[in-house]
Design a protein around this nucleic acid. Structure first.
Lengths: 239, 239
DNA sequence: GAGATATGAATGAACG
DNA sequence: CGTTCATTCATATCTC
């Protein structure tokens, strides 16, 4: 986390001699790049150290030009906003009464985030932004580097998240854990706080959480304790 | 690190005029204030001691309420980010290795890293943030103190940087020099590392650096040695 | 094509 | 001092 922001400042440079450059705008990550970044983030590396940042940048460059600063900013923003969302959820859980459809239904036109109304999908941050424009992301191109091999179609998204095979193969430890972990609830990657999750407050009394092994998740008085990377199933209690 | 922050911090106590605004939690320096701060910083005083900080604060107060802590933080951040930028430049110069052409000319449809194509614009940190919103900063107001007298218009910015007449008139020595100096290249205030500057790596073989006196800048094997506050001109060698 | 939202970038404040 | 957090600014994108 050292050198960032160099590169450009849309802000500064208040001189007139800038040739008629069509106002270089900000970096807009390609869908493939977002996938990579998300998968790295969800794998637990939410705050990559500098050398990792460089590696990630090189990886991303297979899909479009990008700078170290962009990667840094991405993780910083992702972390910050994830944390904020988490806090919001937590806060609104405590505040009974005036609530509303609390999780702000991201409702990206297409996309997986649609899975919101279903209680099972009630997650603080549904992974994936939905493979936006380029339908069925063309990962085939530029994939020569061999580091990536996505299942390919958008349906296969969750698959990706599970395995740790996302390219940063060798780094043994995922530096920096942060207070947020990612679990899979009914197949949907979901961020939750590191501590006990008050599932009752989230889903009500009518649901049970079952670990993928089949055993129901124990809950102490504070809530359930989930583990990063594990899969759970939220099922109606009275079914 | 010690006693800062409480002080006159706009946070806790009486910042005089907050009315009429959407209650901003943190200090947002006015353009005039930024100009002042930048000019002080660029004059070489990058780490003002406490008493100077107080004087600077009083100066800034002519343009809006501000606390000593704000000034302290500003210099701390300015120093930190300046150094960081410097390091990034240096790093990317040395990198050279495996990947693509160094000046990463991101040139996407959108995206960053502008200011790269023009050699003259290749500066680690072009001074001035561009008199953004408030066109032709209204310096006339509150200028009664008489310490400042800007040329006024935005074009006159570089003018300001040159002279040492920036208000802190008497302090004989500019405490703390830091590893960064400010020079003027083709009229643009530019930060460079204190040591020899590898201009060849920065601008290529095709450019010469001429001191404002007219003599070409000597370069040893390491690079050019520039001097703080001096003006230079970067000219094509073959023109 | 105006308004709402998402998000890249910048920066004041603070921590270790 | 380097790093991180929180907030804000600016703009790309989406929606109606």
């Amino acid at each position: 986390m050292e050198d960032h922001e160099a590169e450009t400042g849309p802000r500064g440079s208040g001189d007139g001699d800038q040739r008629a450059e069509p106002v270089r705008s900000r970096w807009t990550p390609k869908p493939e790049q977002i996938l990579i970044l998300e998968s790295i983030f969800n794998s637990g590396m939410v705050n990559p150290p500098k050398d990792e940042t460089v590696r990630i940048r090189k990886l991303l460059e297979k899909f479009g030009s990008v700078g170290d600063a962009n990667v840094f900013y991405w993780f910083q923003n992702r972390r910050s906003r994830s944390r904020r969302r988490q806090r919001q959820i937590q806060a609104s859980l405590g505040a009974a009464g005036d609530v509303q459809p609390q999780p702000r239904a991201i409702h990206n036109g297409n996309s997986i985030a649609g899975a919101y109304y279903n209680p099972a999908a009630l997650c603080s941050y549904p992974i994936s932004n939905g493979p936006g424009s380029s339908s069925s992301i063309g990962l085939d191109s530029a994939n020569a580097g061999g580091m990536f091999s996505f299942p390919g179609q958008q349906g296969g998204l969750q698959e990706l998240q599970h395995g740790s095979g996302f390219g940063l193969q060798d780094s043994p430890n995922l530096h920096y854990q942060s207070g947020v972990i990612t679990v899979f609830i009914n197949g949907v990657a979901t961020e939750v706080g590191r501590g006990p999750v008050d599932m009752k407050a989230m889903f009500g009394e009518d649901y049970l959480l079952i670990h993928s092994s089949g055993v129901a998740v124990e809950a102490n008085e504070h809530g359930f304790l989930l583990q990063h990377g594990e899969s759970y199933f939220l099922v109606p209690r009275h079914s």
